[in-house]
Design a protein around this nucleic acid. Sequence first.
DNA 1: CACATAACGCACTAACTGGTTACTTCCCTA
DNA 2: TAGGGAAGTAACCAGTTAGTGCGTTATGTG
Lengths: 213, 213
Amino acid sequence: MAASNTKKTRDADATRARILAAAKKDFATSGLAGARVDEIADRAEANKRMIYHYFGNKDDLFRIVLEEAYTDIRTAEHNLELEHLPAREALEKLIRFTWDYYLKNPEFITLVNSENLHKARHLKNSEKVDELFKRFVGMVGELLERGVTEGVFRTGIDPVQLNITIAAIGYYYLTNRFTGSIVFKRDLMTPEALEERLAFNIETIMRLVCVDP
Amino acid sequence: MAASNTKKTRDADATRARILAAAKKDFATSGLAGARVDEIADRAEANKRMIYHYFGNKDDLFRIVLEEAYTDIRTAEHNLELEHLPAREALEKLIRFTWDYYLKNPEFITLVNSENLHKARHLKNSEKVDELFKRFVGMVGELLERGVTEGVFRTGIDPVQLNITIAAIGYYYLTNRFTGSIVFKRDLMTPEALEERLAFNIETIMRLVCVDP
DNA sequence: CACATAACGCACTAACTGGTTACTTCCCTA
DNA sequence: TAGGGAAGTAACCAGTTAGTGCGTTATGTG
């Protein structure tokens, strides 16, 4: 499973990008401790020396992969432009987006899990993530306020708690899909199971937030 | 941080138990790949050779630690004796229990995360976990039915989906407490924050399940 | 063209890591 | 009380791992 064979001669940006993509893949698959620098270099079709040249060391590489992952999801979220929809529709769109993003980008979940295993020590040194989230929490807060004004949402809901819950009900299902499929004795990843779960999640949040669910 | 100094001369059971406790701690802290067999032996105040004598290899040791963790939580759950309470109270007790258990046993969460990173390959070889969960899902199913009979719960709720959601809203908050505290710019682990989260979770589930929340 | 600069690669190392070999020490019971 | 088996130990091993020293090669610019 190597990077696309567009390896030209001497292209610093391309090499850097290939290393990042390879690192994302390996860190997501094996965790920080389990991932191997040599394998990342192989997958990137780059020399291991280049990893240290561009990224310093394994931990810094991990930090940058993580920052990129957070930037990606927050950018996609921003592009939803929820502010142009009625509050109820906007909320449902956010729930669907969160679910779909986790589903299509499973590496995001495992990267975040890895970072939490390490008590977020990489994120602590990151300035980038800081500003990303300011906008995001604000967005959901405004959405809630708008819903109250429209008369469709209950008052007094904490946007952070709501955010966490919307993420939780999708994240948990997907991150624990392997043990979950065993202990609950059903394949949690069939198209039908996924559809059913999304519907359940939408209902959960709508009943929590809406005046008249 | 060594095991309690009750190390007598020649006690196979005690040595085995010390190794298991040490392994649980280290696997929970560092993950499967990150944990070191030598360190587990040190922490257990046992010789490394004993680990291989009693448990075979690192992966088998991890599997047994995991089985023990699942047995512990399911046993505690069983001891709740929810069947002796009115359905509504029983449900709230289950939500509180789940939250408190995760809070007091953070290693459970990290062990399960590790196992899922490895696609549950250890659990696949476990017969023990199989029967543990049969009882559990049945218990929640009966609780839901009883609530419907009592006229307090809505009909048609899937016990597995409910189970997953109850776990999810606590699990996600706690497993991601490090990154969460950074991105949301508030300490998620103060007593007030924890209390607030539990209240929010109870409200979420009650609104989802109850006819008249 | 010349040449400085940056991209790239080889081969190496010191420390580590899961697992083992060969041995000693203790306890139980015949 | 003798001796057999289980508990426990130290030293070791072969393979792995993150990280580097240093030389080579391409490329853009004066």
